[in-house]
Design a protein around this nucleic acid. Structure first.
Lengths: 233, 233
DNA sequence: GTCGGAATGTCGGCTTGCTGACGTTTCTGG
DNA sequence: CCAGAAACGTCAGCAAGCCGACATTCCGAC
């Protein structure tokens, strides 16, 4: 199966997640049996939706991006997935999507389940069912929020909101301000906030010149997040 | 409770929905007890999210629109809800939203559940849990689709796609072509496809002059849906 | 190191579709 | 049936931000 992950580790991996935390060890062991584990290094592709279809994934460690291919073969970054988030066929339907996932952090680990297996497990653990449903609900709200930003806010505001959220999630405080490890290119950012590479670059230099942020290729520093917040209210 | 709905009717109402169809009569009767029934006439407001919060609704009969209020008090139509669809706190969380629902068809009927009650029911009926999760998943995909349209398609295409979908869902074939009972104003349409009233009106007259559609205030006729499809590919 | 490709920086032109403005038509409640 | 409101029709002006183009900087593989 997955020899680099001894049973003990795998058991512990699942237990650590909020979805499974409340289960007893017999239930957990059962889920362990249907779980596939996998890891990858930076820039490696974790999965291709097209061939490894019909699986729900759970990001155990690291950060990844989901890239979507349209009919013309253009790649757009759909989403950044953080530790603990679900991805793949999270709607439990079998519609195939043209997307793949790329590791952004040095080392990532994912677990996955066939959707049929996962459904069976849910049937047997109603409390897990509720937890899962609520997780999907959260994702739904997140998407609703993005949609509404796209409707009502201009590109500048969307970028600022993205930075704020990013800072909140992953920022580490330093003497210079909140620091972000930057694993996204301007192109990536552009497709996440629905804009273009040039516009993002433009806005970034503007923000730098006005002193709101500082950045280079590998990191972004926000001296005062409150200043940003003022511009998005 | 709701005297205009005898128990027998209410029982049958629930049974008719795909979520509950597979349940036995004891289970159904139990759900009946926690269900609230309500009906309304055209233009009446079904619910205000702000005061009747924490409920999941299910549209039993008719068509309604969900209108969202932003901070400045502007109204935007978020969604059109059809018979059988869920609305309200479908994510089962308690975040309050500023939205309300208005009846678009002459007569609408809804059932609703407190989210806590609904959760309990789900816990007791794992198969219902899976069905519910999949329904939310479907809604998730629908929203994803709207988001991607907003990213990649211009207003004209979004309008055409909307019309196609509408025709597919509710169109009735007539000698002149597929006919739609039009319960949406141009303003409504505009906010649904994320545009403005004037642009929608403009596009409508263009489409009329080019013979792709015909319309008046109460109905829309699409002589040849295939013609529309050609323009959205 | 160095070479090639990827990422960033910058700019001007141009298009979409938004904004405001105003007139006409249709609906609705009294 | 009538008045007022709501919805529809149309147009000119304008701005956000996309697009193409090109230069520069950086990074990683060899």
């Amino acid at each position: 199966m997955t020899p680099q992950f001894p049973l003990e580790t795998r058991y512990w991996y699942l237990r650590d997640h909020q979805l499974f935390r409340h289960l007893n060890s017999a239930e957990l062991r059962q889920i362990c049996l249907i779980t596939n584990f996998k890891s990858a290094k930076k820039s490696e592709i974790i999965y291709f939706a097209h061939d490894e279809t019909n699986r729900v994934y759970l990001l155990k460690k690291g950060v990844i991006k989901i890239v979507e291919l349209d009919a013309e073969g253009n790649e757009t970054v759909k989403e950044v997935i953080q530790k603990g988030d679900l991805f793949g066929q999270i709607t439990l339907d079998a519609t195939d999507m043209d997307e793949f996932a790329v590791a952004l952090s040095d080392y990532v680990t994912v677990c996955s389940f066939k959707i049929e297996d996962f459904e069976t497990v849910i049937q047997q653990n109603p409390s897990l069912a509720v937890k899962f449903t609520k997780l999907i609900g959260l994702r739904f709200r997140r998407l609703e929020n993005r949609y509404s930003n796209l409707m009502f806010k201009d590109v500048r505001t969307r970028l600022l909101l993205f930075l704020e959220e990013w800072a909140e999630k992953e920022g580490t405080p330093t003497p210079e301000g909140i620091t972000l490890k930057n694993y996204l290119t301007h192109q990536d950012l552009a497709s996440l906030i629905c804009s273009t590479r040039q516009t993002v670059t433009q806005l970034f230099s503007e923000l730098k010149h006005s002193g709101l942020i500082d950045y280079n290729r590998s990191s972004i520093v926000i001296p005062d997040v409150k200043q940003l917040r003022k511009l998005t209210a």
